[in-house]
């Protein structure tokens, strides 16, 4: 039963992810005075791309071919294991370090593929992505450690269960600091404003886009799907760690239905907030990004200290 729920959760996230992307674009378009595209447009793009045969640069090797499946597989694994709809998913598998490691594995695979293309922009994007990843991953770990101090475990399911059964325990100074740190880390990890602009056409300002410039057809569909999935995963983690209401802690149909509805509502709300923030904010100059990320790391460190000292 737990396996079924875990797989169902992964399918839900995989289906939902392009709609989350569509929602951010729709909110952004509306705020810009546009009519905007429909929510399902990213799915239409994927469906068309999946049927186009991919091309490969003449100098590319195995890394270029392997990166899209690796990126999607790591994202799907996180979608199976981490507590999004129900906390009773595969016990002990949703360890924080495993989840962060899987996300990093996908990022490294794509960075290697960017280098593998042999183009100037691919290498530049890979170098920038790794710079940002090296600054973001410690923040991701540390901000969740602040929550695991209270629970005494780095198992994400245990942390979310503790929050869902005792909602008042979430409101601590440590949680507020950790939430701010994890929010900034999420923006950086997903390549959103102010760290990276997902809709840029200017190669010199690209980070994530520069690595995937050479992908086409089916490979591009996998990369875009996986990117949308990573955004959904990180928004879902942010929502469930700091607002764990509605998450199913028992495997009853009613609890699962509430969990699914709460998850969709929370991720939708965060995605709309993200898009509104992107309209109001500008992208940071690349050399200012480490300052922002160092600031988020300091917040995460303070969160851990506050959790350890104040309890």
């Amino acid at each position: 039963m737990t396996v079924l729920v875990a797989l169902g959760q992964a399918v839900l996230l995989a289906v939902l992810a392009p709609y989350v992307l569509g929602l951010t674009r729709a909110v952004r378009a509306r705020l810009e005075g546009r009519a905007g595209r429909r929510l399902g447009q990213p799915w239409r793009d994927l469906r068309k791309l999946l049927r186009k045969p991919p091309t490969s640069p003449s100098d590319a090797s195995l890394f270029f071919v392997a990166a899209p499946p690796v990126l999607l597989a790591t994202s799907l694994l996180v979608a199976v294991a981490a507590p999004f709809v129900a906390t009773t998913s595969l016990a002990g598998e949703a360890d924080l370090i495993v989840v962060v490691g899987l996300l990093l594995l996908g990022a490294v695979a794509l960075a290697l593929a960017g280098l593998d293309t042999g183009t100037a922009f691919g290498g530049m994007g890979a170098s920038r992505e790794m710079t940002i990843a090296a600054l973001v991953e410690p923040t991701l770990l540390l901000s969740v450690f602040a929550l695991s101090v209270r629970v005494g475990s780095t198992d994400l399911a245990a942390i979310v269960t503790a929050g869902a059964t005792d909602p008042a325990s979430v409101f601590t100074p440590a949680s507020a600091l950790a939430a701010a740190a994890l929010a900034i880390a999420t923006l950086a990890e997903c390549g959103r404003v102010p760290v990276d602009n997902p809709s840029t056409h200017l190669e010199l300002t690209m980070v994530h886009e520069a690595m995937v410039l050479e992908y086409s057809g089916r490979d591009l569909a996998l990369v875009e799907w996986a990117s949308a999935l990573r955004l959904t995963i990180l928004l879902g983690l942010l929502a469930n760690l700091f607002a764990p209401w509605g998450v199913a802690t028992h495997l009853t149909p009613v609890a699962l239905a509430i969990g699914t509805a709460a998850f969709i509502a929370k991720v939708g709300g965060l995605a709309a907030l993200l898009a509104a923030g992107e309209v109001l904010a500008a992208k940071l100059r690349l050399f200012r990004v480490p300052e922002l990320l160092a600031g988020s790391f300091a917040l995460a460190l303070l969160a851990v200290l506050a959790a350890a000292v104040l309890g």
């Binding site: 378009a29 546009r34 595209r37 239409r44 091309t55 056409h201 886009e209 410039l213 050479e214 591009l220």
Partner: peptide, 21 residues
């Protein structure tokens, strides 16, 4: 632009000919 907004009909400008139809 926001006034004519071709994006609402499903068209999108992309950064690479590899991504383009």
């Amino acid at each position: 632009s926001p006034v004519y907004d071709a994006e609402r009909y499903g068209a999108r400008l992309v950064a690479s000919p590899r991504h383009a139809d």
